[in-house]
Nucleic acid binder design. Structure first.
Lengths: 165, 165
DNA sequence: GCAGAATGCTTTAGGTTTAATCTATTCAAG
DNA sequence: CTTGAATAGATTAAACCTAAAGCATTCTGC
């Protein structure tokens, strides 16, 4: 018996559960399985965490730096949380706060050290993801990308009641 | 502070990012979007949290009760976490710890009160999920279910036995 | 100009989650 | 039986995350 994979949340769904619910549970399970592997490897190989990696990843994509609220929006976490993580990374010399025209704000940027450290992690991270998804064909990837795009649309659209569609 | 759908993690991926990485980021974004809605509604409507709901959901599927490590495995969270949540629910009279043959362990079960409370939440929860996924056709659901099943396989199987050097 | 509203970020307080460690019980080999 | 390894839960320290309140700066309408 495949001990671990047969005992998760979604496998246990009863036969009469509706299809939408099954889909949601399966989506959640997949995400958590991948997240767990990535978290563990980031910790073991690089002594860092997923939130820290994600934040640095955003900065790497925006060399000119990002404001705190932009980071907050992109990472989908609260501002206070971003403050804490940036504090950490700044203390370790991986990011820096640079003055902005708007004196209330500043831009957070990777330092040279941060850029080097992130580059190394990013290469490993991408290899892990490729490895984890190796069981799927190129065709599967395309299908999933398309369907998830549609799902994302379905989540974002109707959920925002404040905006008239 | 809700995330705008145009500025999340995955949208910002650069064009030259590899497909597997894009897929992973999109999967993560979808999960987080749905999770956020469900968490908020559970809090507003039922003054509870997603982990508490998930745990009760497992117990509802296993009326004879589950041991702590079984809960931990199915919910994919650590044992210490399960201890905390069971403590909470037991204090509120929603679950109970029943003695087991193995005196180190016990079985956690829903109480009558817990079963009634969960039933109400489960109906609402399922309706939310159906609503959130309403933008997808039946055909989309089937496609996603199949592809995610394959993805789950890909995560659980090869990633476990070969610990890369 | 100049109040008052809005924005950008931090702080605070409280709860959640994890990894590591600890205690008690069971199991298995002599 | 007895000793050592394995297992079931609980506990602890640190990281994470949130909501709400607070401070400083900028924007807007008059």
């Amino acid at each position: 018996m495949p001990a671990r994979s047969a005992a998760d949340r979604e496998s246990a769904a009863r036969a009469d559960d509706h299809r939408a619910l099954r889909l949601w549970l399966r989506l959640l399970t997949c995400t958590q399985l991948i997240e767990r592997v990535v978290r563990r490897r980031l910790r073991e190989r690089f002594a860092t965490t997923l939130p820290r990696f994600d934040l640095m990843s955003q900065l790497e994509r925006n060399p000119e730096g990002l404001k705190m609220n932009e980071l907050s929006r992109r990472l989908m976490v609260t501002g206070g949380n971003v403050t804490g993580i940036v504090d950490q990374l700044a203390r370790e010399g991986l990011v820096e706060r640079a003055a902005d025209a708007d004196r209330r704000a500043f831009r957070v940027r990777l330092t040279r050290t941060g850029r080097r450290a992130f580059g190394e992690m990013a290469r490993a991270h991408e290899a892990w993801i490729v490895e984890i998804l190796a069981g799927l064909t190129q065709r599967d990837h395309d299908g999933l990308l398309a369907l998830l795009a549609k799902l994302k649309q379905s989540c974002s659209g109707p959920a925002r009641r404040s905006e008239p569609a």
